[in-house]
Design a protein around this nucleic acid. Structure first.
Length: 574
DNA sequence: GCCGTTTTCGGCCCGACTGTTTTCAGTCG
């Protein structure tokens, strides 16, 4: 079993323990170990030693032994026994809102209910209301929750949720009385996929603000309404929470509701060590508030640098902030040019000229065109005999815009055997060659990894595009060893892109640190097919920020002449 | 189950809202 599968088993054990009613801290220990393992750089195989595993904070002897068993493809007895003692349907039942492990356990133990179907019938037959600690309201909530499980996914693309959150903030702001307001939660941390919308605000009239919030036209249902917290479900299916606090509490509340949960837990435990209590209303020493005007001052109390929201995942940012060694992460304005876009030579709906005009308007100083190659028939890829015309057109536009640099490129398919779909003769005509997998996704891990590495060995390969091929919420990544890909990129001097399409965000932020460690250079590419698509580069910046990347790591934050040198050196070196 | 610059035992982050209860457990974030 590989690391990903092992992480999944550890998480399953924690869920099974929850349904068993096990000790809360034991449950959390498994969750913590799973997460620690996931985020560590350790590569797990059948030779992995206990000592390596125990060195990961959160993994002890017991869990290390289970990981070792799993790495040898043996399921630990503990897991087998747990799994066989708990019907799979109970796990599904956890997806129902307002229904947690305790109630599920009760329903199973006392009523023999072991899946969503049985639960639904029991509710319809009015057999749930009347049970101890269950009433009519709970029964209705369960039925409603079941309906939602059937209807909605639990996750939404950042781009969709962010748009809706911004609209809500604007409406609350225009209603007056708001003194502070911000999007918080995973949206503020710029996760690619989010579960809900969190908003923190201060106002002189909390009642009014709650009324406005719960009365918004996009609200389909009010799930909670109080003086300081209200929750609604939007018509889109996304849940949104509004928290209202006093002005002086705003920085603490903003930090608290921005999370992540793991970051907060770590911060609180750190606070506790210095005798400070930390919650959404403040920092307290001996019940006395330590005044902070903004989030920056909260971190200062602990003698830490300000931690950007994107970094707050408890992946080392707290330690780095304490030792004043946080990375200087990039900003939208650091991006000076955009590569990887498609024009009407393949499946884009704009000409190179139109693209260039737009990019100049957006303030960029260079770009790199890369239409699809001949194998991508579905995308109108360019046949061998049309390459000359494609390059000629690029040259015409190049000459028209002297102050703006256009790099000439192509997105060449990595075929199933690892070869690229153009001859070296054709590939040599370009300033850069993006290589990508667009077909035969169902290869096994070893074969897929070897295929991509062979593609990178081509002497003209410049950038590897969307390295895992995933489509968020729609298509799993193909089976590939991403660390091996990064190692190979380092060895064969190939850059990797962060595909900034909100549907892809591939390379993922969690792999960026390893790429940086291996000195692999990164491009943030919009993969635009239309003029509007260029704006997507910002989503890629979000990924780079979460991934601790700095300007030195990201090629398209460099000036055009440096990029030109970088590309030509790559071509000559190979 | 994990962890330790007071600790190898005894802790483990904290609070709002709901619904079912008469003081609180469960769920969620």
């Amino acid at each position: 079993m590989d690391k990903k599968e092992i992480v999944s088993v550890l998480n399953k054990i924690s869920i099974l323990y929850e349904l068993k009613g096990e000790n809360f801290f034991k449950i959390r220990a498994y969750q913590a170990a799973a997460r620690a393992l996931e985020l560590s750089d350790i590569n797990i195989d059948s030779n992995t030693l206990e000592s390596e595993l125990i060195s990961i904070k959160g993994v002890g002897k017991s869990i290390a032994a289970q990981i070792i068993e799993l790495s040898k493809n043996e399921l630990p007895d503990l897991y087998k026994n747990l799994k066989s003692s708990i019907p799979a349907g109970l796990l599904e039942m956890l997806k129902i809102q307002k229904l947690g492990p305790k109630k599920i356990k009760f329903l199973y133990d006392e009523m023999g209910i072991s899946d969503i179907g049985q639960l639904e019938s029991a509710c319809i037959e009015n057999r749930i209301a009347g049970l101890p600690n269950f009433g009519k309201k709970t029964q209705d909530n369960i039925l409603h929750g079941i309906e939602l499980v059937k209807k909605f996914s639990e996750a939404f693309l950042y781009s969709i949720a962010a748009g809706q959150a911004e609209t809500i903030v604007e409406k609350l702001q225009s209603s007056g009385h708001i003194t502070h307001i911000s999007i918080a939660g995973s949206l503020r941390r710029k996760k690619g996929v989010v579960k809900d919308i969190d908003i923190v605000a201060c106002t002189q009239n909390p009642g009014d603000a709650m009324d406005i919030f719960t009365g918004l036209s996009q609200v389909s249902e009010i799930t909670a309404k109080g003086e300081t917290k209200s929750s609604v479900r939007l018509k889109s299916g996304i849940n949104a929470d509004l928290r209202i606090v006093e002005n002086f509490q705003y920085p603490y509340a903003l930090h608290h509701f921005t999370g992540s949960k793991e970051h907060n837990t770590a911060m609180r435990s750190l606070a506790k060590k210095s005798g400070i209590k930390m919650n959404e209303y403040g920092l307290f020493k001996n019940d006395k508030l330590i005044k902070c005007r903004d989030e920056k001052e909260i971190f200062s109390v602990f003698n830490m640098e300000y931690i950007e929201p994107e970094l707050r995942e408890n992946t080392g940012e707290i330690e780095a902030a304490a030792s004043r060694s946080l990375p200087g992460i990039i900003d939208d304005k650091d991006i000076l040019g955009l590569f990887h876009f498609h024009t009407d030579y393949s499946d884009g709906n704009m000409s190179l000229r139109q693209a260039t005009v737009r990019l100049i308007e957006m303030g960029f100083s260079y770009c790199g065109i890369s239409d699809h190659s001949k194998t991508a028939a579905y995308a109108g890829g360019i046949a061998d005999e049309k390459i000359a015309a494609y390059i000629e057109n690029t040259n015409i536009v190049k000459n028209e815009f002297k102050e703006f640099t256009i790099f000439s490129g192509i997105e060449s398919d990595i075929l199933a055997d690892g070869s690229l779909d153009y001859s070296d003769e054709i590939l040599s005509l370009f300033d850069f060659v993006i290589i990508a997998v667009h077909s035969s996704f169902n290869m096994n891990r070893k074969a897929m990894t070897e295929r991509i590495i062979k593609g990178m060995q081509n002497r003209f390969a410049t950038i590897l595009a969307h390295p895992t091929g995933r489509l968020l919420l729609a298509r799993d990544p193909y089976d590939v060893d991403i660390n091996e890909i990064i190692d190979a990129a380092s060895a064969y001097n190939v850059d990797i892109e962060i595909n900034a399409s909100p549907f892809r965000l591939d390379l993922d932020w969690q792999n960026c640190k390893y790429a940086k460690e291996k000195n692999v250079k990164i491009f943030i590419n919009p993969d635009a097919h239309s003029l509007e698509g260029f704006n997507d580069y910002r989503y890629g910046v979000n990924v780079a920020r979460k991934g601790w990347l700095e300007k030195t790591d990201i090629v398209n934050t460099w000036q055009a002449d440096k990029v030109a040198l970088h590309l030509s050196r790559k071509k000559q070196a190979k």
